[in-house]
Nucleic acid binder design. Structure first.
Lengths: 180, 180
DNA sequence: GGCTTTAGCTAGCTTGTCTAGTAATGAGCA
DNA sequence: TGCTCATTACTAGACAAGCTAGCTAAAGCC
């Protein structure tokens, strides 16, 4: 980065007048690296695979929305087979994070209830971080938030566009209702 | 999101005067989801695992910097054992993406040269997206870039801080020289 | 020259995914 | 109502990619 670096309480700081486009992209990359570190540590600290953790987060979200989650939804979310979901749920049940329950609305399916233990386990790792991120977003004033929001939308589109062309319907395409 | 939604050529658009902190975090999450989609598609389109793709990118970067990469560095980057790196390189060699070469500076080690085919394969997928992202970053004026940069730094710190506390030396700690 | 460390490989194991096939239930139709 | 097809979850068996342990060859250090 070309900017003159000075040091503040919150880490390195760069003269804001000189931030280049490349710097912004580098910061993005750096964020992603931090995010990956965080995820890896979460997984290791609670002895869980990537998909297992994502599944737990999905289950918590679903219950929070008042929509009891079933196994099939995990297969869609994680893009794994229903057989793999069965194995995944077995693991979560064995670890005491989840219990299977009968679904009164469709007796073929299985509702996945998170245990208090599993709930606390996942929340403990993620809530603090979420809180910190929220605080960062709240420190922005309204016009700054608008700038960030616009940029994030453009980056999202850039990523979607960039990837859309060389993988035409990789395997059944998007399964979600919102689609491509 | 609370804002009044209107529709533009580039998708949904929200009244910029009303973007809340939650909205920013949602957009951030959405970006991350797009990024994951992209990576998955890359992997699928070139029949490659996650680590294999990351390894290829690292190799390209190393050569670009004029610093021939060796196998050990992949073990550090990907945090996998040297045995797994051997297997990973075997896969890349079998796919024709990489060739092993003798290292004149240390005859124990193996320099990994990317083939023209592997080079084109990986670049083709990533360069376009990188170009689009750069364009988005360049559309920002200097003061906007400063805002985005500050936000990204704060998010990175939030993630690092949030994850740092609950994973004290999870399993033998870091394998890197700084470790236990 | 010996001893230790480092780089990479081999062998055998574990884990998480896959495909194929099955049983039970739901949904549509004559 | 009974028949047929679709859907949900499960079991069994195979495969892929990681791991640990142990090996050889080269480098580094007294």
């Amino acid at each position: 980065m070309p900017a003159t670096a000075t040091y503040t309480s919150s880490g390195y700081w760069y003269d804001e007048g000189r931030v280049g486009a490349v710097d912004v992209l580098n910061l993005f990359r750096r964020y992603r690296a931090a995010d990956e570190r965080m995820q890896r540590r979460s997984r290791e600290s609670m002895q869980m695979g990537d998909n297992d953790l994502r599944a737990m987060r999905f289950l918590l979200q679903s219950w929070a929305k008042g929509r009891p989650p079933v196994a099939r939804e995990l297969a869609e979310l994680l893009r794994i087979s229903t057989a793999s979901v069965t194995a995944l749920i077995d693991r979560l049940v064995r670890a005491g994070h989840v219990v299977r329950e009968a679904n009164p609305e469709d007796r073929r399916s299985v509702v996945l209830r998170t245990t208090e233990h599993g709930d606390a386990c996942v929340r403990g790792t993620l809530d603090r971080m979420h809180h910190e991120m929220m605080a960062a977003a709240e420190r922005l004033d309204p016009s700054e938030r608008a700038v960030v929001a616009r940029f994030l939308r453009e980056m999202t589109e850039a990523v979607d566009r960039g990837a859309a062309e060389d993988a035409p319907e990789p395997r059944g395409g998007e399964r979600s209702p919102a689609g491509a």
